[in-house]
Design a binder for these strands. Structure first.
Lengths: 243, 243
DNA sequence: CGGCTTATTGACGCTTATCAAAGCAGGTGG
DNA sequence: CCACCTGCTTTGATAAGCGTCAATAAGCCG
């Protein structure tokens, strides 16, 4: 049996892309609140606010960010289909960062109060949550390393490789091309670089035939060269280890 | 309390296999495997390695970091008493960063394989784990914002405030003084600044009577002024007691 | 005492931010 | 259909923050 409305929902199975069967369906029917469609530009979560909902991204892309009092903005990460939004906020009681939809998005929504039920009755699902949380934490550690240690050119290369590989793994690629519906300002804010410098770096990479990002599409010319620039070690896709 | 010997210990310190008889923390009844004492300088976890253990810090301090191929090092965070080490690695199967003891430390050690049992039988404890994970993720988001958006002076002020408040909350303070057994190089590596620039910034803050860090002790002269420099809003989440 | 690690300070220059302005597309209204 | 606006990208010029190099000083230890 397949639950078709949540085709990318990581919560529906230990393995994010395996359809549900039997009891899992019952569980999802009890936990799932509903589906939600939002337009590009919508703010899904606001930093500092109460966060009564959790979301799984079915389609579309978004951006997670924090803002300083004086307006400076740090993009914490880009949100792609399959990502989970609001776990941190639900557990801590208050959202620590904002989330904006950058394209139209479809979301799977849950109630925060159901989270405890999940832990009581579905330890395997709870374990999955911890796994997702660990993956996110791991990414943040990498990002921190990038901002702290890599040069501007290395940062841009790193970000392009990371985004390309995530999108490819989701099957959203068309050969060497993936959709990338963000602005240069967004990338700059995610890398701690100025817009101008980010633009010049992107132009340079384009001039060298390494990567081209126009009209919301990223085309990778030489992935290995980019990985070299970013000092990125070889890193296989990690299968989901249970126990 | 019965303290089990730490078996199959992967640690490198010559004293790694010495069990302790402490009674301070009995976190997670039935889950605890043993207590462990390590010397300053010991590497508790190595990036990329298998991580069969989880630790709770009873006393002492450490450092979590990642290294790039060419030797550049990013300090992800400082580890204080009460912190949890290895959850991420246990769940993901491989440690994403290394952990060094910067002072002698006493640790509470668990087996990775007991994690699943915890989820099955102690959902409340499992929920605590997610909470700790969320707090860590929240901190990483703040750190990322600091490296991405704050100037050198702002970064140093931010770090000093953060460390002072964490240590104070643990009751390790003596008025405006807290122990801070790290080197300037460690702080520099955590903030993405050079050692030289970090030193000059610290000297400047000292000259202004805002903070003095000598001989492993940090004394805060004017906490509010430091918070202003760091553009830090009022204190956020409250630490929640484990157990 | 010599060797080691860490803190400190000055000089210099590169990377990157900032300022400024122009091009370009899409949308709107006259 | 064209003028005009707005948001995004692109480019050049200039300056500053911060990294790098180099050297001294101070403590610790065998």
């Amino acid at each position: 049996m397949i639950v078709d409305r949540c085709e990318n929902c990581p919560l529906k199975s230990k393995n994010a892309f395996v359809p549900l069967t039997g009891t899992e369906v019952d569980f999802m029917n009890g936990f799932k609140k509903g589906e939600l469609a939002v337009e590009a530009g919508t703010t899904l979560v606001t930093e500092g606010s109460d966060a009564p909902h959790l979301y799984t991204v079915l389609s579309g892309m978004g951006m997670r960010y924090k803002t300083l009092e004086d307006g400076r903005r740090q993009v914490i990460g880009f949100i792609l289909p399959g990502d989970f939004i609001g776990l941190q906020a639900s557990v801590m009681g208050e959202a620590q960062n904002s989330v904006d939809a950058k394209t139209d998005m479809r979301l799977c929504a849950f109630q925060r109060r159901d989270l405890w039920t999940l832990f009581e009755r579905h330890p395997d699902r709870a374990y999955d949550l911890v796994w997702m949380s660990a993956v996110e934490e791991s990414f943040l550690g990498e990002a921190l390393t990038t901002l702290g240690q890599r040069s501007g050119r290395e940062r841009v290369a790193w970000a392009l490789v990371k985004l390309f590989e995530r999108l490819s793994a989701l099957g959203l690629d068309d050969g060497e091309r993936v959709p990338l519906p963000f602005r240069q300002q967004d990338l700059a804010d995610s890398l701690g670089l100025s817009l101008v410098h980010t633009n010049k770096t992107l132009r340079a990479l384009h001039g060298e035939g390494l990567a081209t990002w126009v009209d919301g599409e990223l085309e990778i010319g030489d992935l290995d060269a980019l990985r070299d620039i970013a000092l990125l070690a070889e890193e296989g896709f990690q299968p989901r280890p249970l126990i």
